[in-house]
Design a protein around this nucleic acid. Structure first.
Lengths: 332, 332
DNA sequence: ACTCGGATTGTAATCGTTTACATACCTAAC
DNA sequence: GTTAGGTATGTAAACGATTACAATCCGAGT
């Protein structure tokens, strides 16, 4: 049933070593023998067993990608960037979806220690930093999108602080003063950074922020909707809102529309991410665009270098974000 | 550096066999020895090498899922269903994104033959049926969403024909007679099925379909937009359009709006898939909902049975689709 | 005290490759 | 015709676990 290298060797009247060489270093074996062997391989429809090869070589040609939610188009785009360079370099990707669950996130660390992958890229870092650091000491690990404060683990992301600052300044420059902010979950560095950028911009322009107007969401459409409804309920309306994700921005806008107000005429809304859908949505979202695919590509290339123990000059790669102006923000 | 089972054995003063047993069949080893071994494992921070185990056991506890485009929210939801039951059963998933490329799709078949995965679920079947059949003869394979005509490969999907028929009949019952259809790529069975359902409904109600009004798209927003613009250019307007995907339906609607017409007042549009975004879109899409997550779950469970050589009663699992009525369709 | 038999543990073969090392081959130069 | 020296092949030891089989232990029954 199962045809192995010995079968091929037997059929071609050579040793297993020769067969193996034909497959991996053809230049070291004579033309005529190569042909014999190739013929035998063909005849038996032999396929080398990768597991055996991996055991011998102590490498899996596989990398693990840990994603908080594959269903989120932003992450799937990053993933695609990773996958693209992975296959180009002959690697496969093992998918780890955590469903935003810290425990499962931790669980995936084992895969690395159990040698089932040569390296790992994390698109989430909710678990305790120490555990990640520990693993990263022994295995190639890179963070994408997220980062860990004060850590030297290689990272690729945008500068969330400056992105958020730029977004907020844009609102201010258009005359807005009473600006609300709907943040992501604050246990995530990236959410805190965006909030920090928001505060920085407000401070620079000497505006005070009304504490009631900064609320913590969870990046989801629903949380955006609910938080905006809360503003209505409280009777505390801003003239503009900076939402830390496009999903939330859309929720906010839906809520505003539900009160028969208009965006941007009555209230402006600015998002973050630039999902494909954000330009289809009405009003089309003004937002900060993240180069998701490129983040993935860069992360994988960085990981590749780590795996091959090449020198990495910059450990933190910051990609450019961009304010894309569409229709959801207006002047005061 | 690398701590193996022999190190543990040495430290605990037992044989490697015993260590292995502690890990895999604890009931066969005495309590006190188990403790000794566990302590040694702890002390050395030993993690079994999965590759070695897999080689010995000839199984990888990994399954391969081949997706045409992970970025598409529909597929990523199916994938999530697969992943959910996979991890529940102790399996990991290897991701194969083909980028809609037939060659890459074919390439992934090798992974199975090279024993890097115990089974495979295909969310796409564009390549020639013979190749898939061939692989499926020797390895566990299940198709999800797609199917191959006249094949006995286990499949889970909805009934695309009846779904499309139901959708079209709904339009007809509302008084529409001049109905257009924007199909998916017709080299895909599923697209042909949806078109077939459309024709069936029209025939049953004795309506003639204007050939100009059925056009082939590629499931994308842009193709929907462009094809609708083509209708405008031709001056051939239907009163309703059945689009074979929500993405295309949204494109169609955008095109209609761009001509200052209204949906559904001037033209009705009905979609297919029920993406998360379809209910946020304005007008909210009336569409055929596919149980994406459940398709994934069922596919994985089916695959599990194949892998364990259990008897599978039904080889084709048909899940229920559902017409969800929202705002994009009106009476004539 | 001595056996017997089940419960534990140990020894060594095995999974299917790769590869260090040894050996055989072959050509060219003398 | 020898031989040096590279080239091509073969032999067998890894890789790190699992497991069939053999060996040992230990308590109960006599």
């Amino acid at each position: 049933m199962m045809v192995g290298i010995v079968d091929v060797a037997k059929k071609a009247n050579v040793s297993t070593a020769t067969v193996s060489r034909v497959l991996t270093k053809p230049e070291t074996v004579r033309e005529t023998t190569t042909e014999k062997v190739l013929k035998a391989i063909e005849a038996l429809n032999y396929q080398p067993n990768l597991i055996a090869r991996q055991l011998r070589r102590l490498e899996t040609k596989t990398i693990l990608v840990v994603v908080p939610d594959i269903t989120n188009p932003f992450f799937s785009k990053v993933l695609r960037g990773i996958e693209a360079v992975a296959v180009a370099k002959g690697y496969q990707v093992l998918l780890g979806d955590t469903g935003n669950d810290v425990e499962r996130e931790k669980g995936y660390l084992n895969i690395l220690q159990q040698k089932k992958a040569d390296g790992m890229v994390l698109l989430t870092a909710r678990m305790d930093a120490a555990a990640v650091e520990e693993v990263a000491r022994s295995f190639p690990v890179v963070l994408a999108c997220e980062y860990i404060e004060g850590s030297r683990i290689p990272t690729v992301s945008i500068d969330n602080i400056s992105g958020a600052r730029k977004a907020t300044e844009y609102l201010i420059d258009l005359g807005h003063e009473r600006i609300g902010c709907i943040t992501g979950p604050l246990d995530i560095v990236l959410s805190r950074d965006r909030l920090k950028g928001f505060y920085q911009a407000m401070a620079r322009k000497n505006l005070i922020v009304d504490p009631v107007l900064v609320q913590e969401g969870d990046f989801s459409f629903d949380s955006g909707f609910n938080l905006m409804m809360k503003f209505f309920a409280l009777g505390q309306l801003p003239t503009a809102i900076f939402a830390a994700s496009d999903d939330m921005a859309m929720g906010v806008i839906k809520a505003i529309k539900s009160k028969d107000l208009k965006v941007p005429e009555d209230i402006s809304v600015l998002g973050f991410d630039d999902l494909k859908f954000s330009s289809i949505f009405e009003p089309a979202l003004t937002t900060i665009a993240q180069p998701a695919f490129e983040i993935g590509e860069n992360a994988m290339e960085l990981l590749m270098k780590l795996i091959h123990k090449e020198e990495v000059k910059r450990e933190q790669i910051i990609l450019a974000d961009q304010l894309v102006v569409r229709e959801s923000v207006g002047t005061i």
